[in-house]
Amino acid sequence: MNDRKTLTFALMDPPYESARTTTAFRLLHAAIAQGHDVNVFAYEGAVALPFARQAPHANATHGRSAEEERHPVPREWVDALAAMAREKGTAFDWVNCGLCVDERGVGEAVACARRGSPADFWKMAEASHNTLVIGTR
């Protein structure tokens, strides 16, 4: 596909703290849906997004059990983007900043996320058609 591009995104916010996380994942979704290859560099708190031990919960206030509530857990979003990319035949590479992972103790990540460093971000940006940084405010 001639229009297929490589786009890199840097994320920085931890889960459950900012609307930026939702918008960032919507951008990733739209990019894959349009057939682009997508790289993600997760920096600082964002390395907890693919943390494998996130657990959905019930919501008594809304009167729903855990099964009914299907509470969003971002690790499922990361996995779901990888699954969508496989279906579309595009590339999806999620790199967690290793030092950020270590200081937070969130090394146990979903399988599609890999450990890396700022050097990976630089290489991804160099090899991409465009890069969008979504920093913490």
């Binding site: 229009d3 786009l7 919507r26 739209a30 349009q34 058609h129 969008l132």
Partner: peptide
């Protein structure tokens, strides 16, 4: 606009900042 329109601009090489 849908957010996908922004992705289209990213893919077209518009310099992007958040």
């Amino acid at each position: 606009a849908p957010l996908g329109e922004a992705v289209g601009l990213l893919a077209a090489g518009w310099k992007a900042a958040w």
